[in-house]
Design a protein around this nucleic acid. Structure first.
Lengths: 169, 169
DNA sequence: AAAAATTATATGACTTGTCACGTATTATTT
DNA sequence: AAATAATACGTGACAAGTCATATAATTTTT
């Protein structure tokens, strides 16, 4: 333990090295770096936001869908889409239509303007994915996805279940 | 392409499966799940926030340090710490003292109250890390960290550099 | 037919991240 | 000694995530 009131560069360096190996400590920065780089790419591909990009991509690839569908594909809370879509409609990128058969649902569809915005961003973002494949092999990416899925499953385990497990051991 | 205005469950399913293999698409949800689970654990370990937990852990393990030090260990922007620390001081968890030798710097130190809060949360969070090791082997975690570091390096590459590289190919 | 339960979306509020900028201080250069 | 550059931190503003709640609509149960 460092002396009271005294900085210890050695202890700080050790702490840093220790946290390098802590998955939970590493995720926030990796996610933030991904977001930042994604935003940089999109700035050069029409200036749309990451949520706008994801949504236009989903709609152009898979056709009209509900807010729930978008949330499921994007693995996000529906409120994120609920909030983003009216602005996208105001920008002329999408239409939002109440489903006649089930008035609880809103069907979101891309417009020609939205498709145009997608076409500007798509090659830039494709370049990003290609660049990742130049940096990491297909096997590495596949291994990473496998481990990421395993981690995600673990992270979806409620804290109580994990804490209770120890109690019973 | 789906018929205009028509939902296509098949296309949506395919889209979902496709994005399962996209690293950039997967990260936000994994990070959000990690944060959520971390908050759940902390709720059962004294009720402190994730940033508070990280900071108390850093200070208890490595002793007093500057805001820059904390930011470096946590791989976060200094403003995140700059914002969190006054509240932690107000809660009595830390002291913030201007460095006599360099008045630009603030030295942050844990108090006995902060250490007590750390002692409540620490075993709960240790349990979380142990639970991860029950879920993933040491080799898997090590492999994941290695790939995460590789990905992080890639993500720190500016977009211009990656876009320019293609231009010159 | 009516009541209860479930589902879909919108919105309030919050957390956690960042970038940009300003101020104060120290270090370096002239 | 003075000017310039660099560094540390505080703050404004914003993006992207979530949880909780309310309202409306549909489905299920009684």
């Amino acid at each position: 333990m460092a002396d009271k009131g005294k900085l210890s560069p050695e202890a700080i360096r050790e702490r840093r090295a220790h946290e390098e190996l802590n998955v939970f400590s590493r995720l926030p920065a990796v996610y933030a770096a991904s977001r930042k780089q994604g935003q940089q790419f999109l700035q050069r591909g029409g200036g749309i936001s990451i949520v706008e990009w994801r949504t236009l991509w989903d709609l152009c690839e898979a056709g009209p869908m509900t807010i729930r569908d978008l949330a499921a594909i994007q693995r996000a809370d529906h409120s994120l889409l609920s909030r983003a879509l009216p602005d996208m409609r105001d920008k002329g990128f999408v239409t939002m239509t109440r489903d006649e058969a089930d008035k609880r649902q809103t069907v979101v569809e891309v417009t020609s303007k939205g498709r145009a915005a997608y076409e500007v961003a798509a090659p830039v973002m494709a370049r990003r994915r290609a660049a990742l494949r130049e940096s990491m092999t297909e096997d590495e990416i596949r291994a990473f996805i496998t481990l990421l899925t395993k981690l995600e499953d673990f992270l979806h385990t409620p804290a109580d279940q994990l804490l209770e497990r120890e109690t019973h051991q």
